[in-house]
Amino acid sequence: MMRMSKIVRTCADLMYPFVVIFGWYVIMHGHLTPGGGFQGGAVVATGAALVIVAYSYQEITSMLKKAVLMVQESTGLLLFIGAGLGGMVLGFPFFFNWLANSGSLFGMSVPYGPNPGELNTAGFLPLMNIAVGIEVWGGLTLVILYLLSGLEKGEA
């Protein structure tokens, strides 16, 4: 039952929400700023890695369940494919951007040329970014947990 000192644990507790919020900012603004689902999901997984480093293995496995993360990763990939398939129900080809310029969710148009941008644009690209973000978040956290489980019980 080894873990880092109280200073490290307190700092990890303080930093974790900000890391997660920044990761979700990168995911949600993927169609406006540099970044996107992959990068934002990696940032959120970095927050999980911070907590994993700060706490002991037993405390981590009681907080982060591998089965939940597996379901999360599969859900992300299924959401991604489902967003692509959604247009086929309405008669569009596979992976057609069926929400762009439609006026509904994320359906605003943008003028040509440089402009400040609007969150409610880009059709299904934000849905894709969210799906990929969920998948990368779950997947990378799962990889870190599996790599950690290679250690002996008393080592971490």
């Binding site: 993927g30 169609h31 406006l32 700023t33 540099p34 996107g36 692509g84 992976f95 951007n97 762009a100 310029n101 359906g107 605003m108 148009s109 943008v110 003028p111 040509y112 040329g113 402009n115 941008g117 644009t121 880009a122 059709g123 690209l125 894709m128 970014n129």
Partner: peptide, 19 residues
């Protein structure tokens, strides 16, 4: 910008044109 209604051309290519 006209077809995909996105300011970020890189995201447009990665997620739509090269989906």
């Amino acid at each position: 910008q006209e077809q995909i209604a996105t300011n970020n051309i890189v995201t447009t290519i990665v997620f739509d044109y090269r989906g």
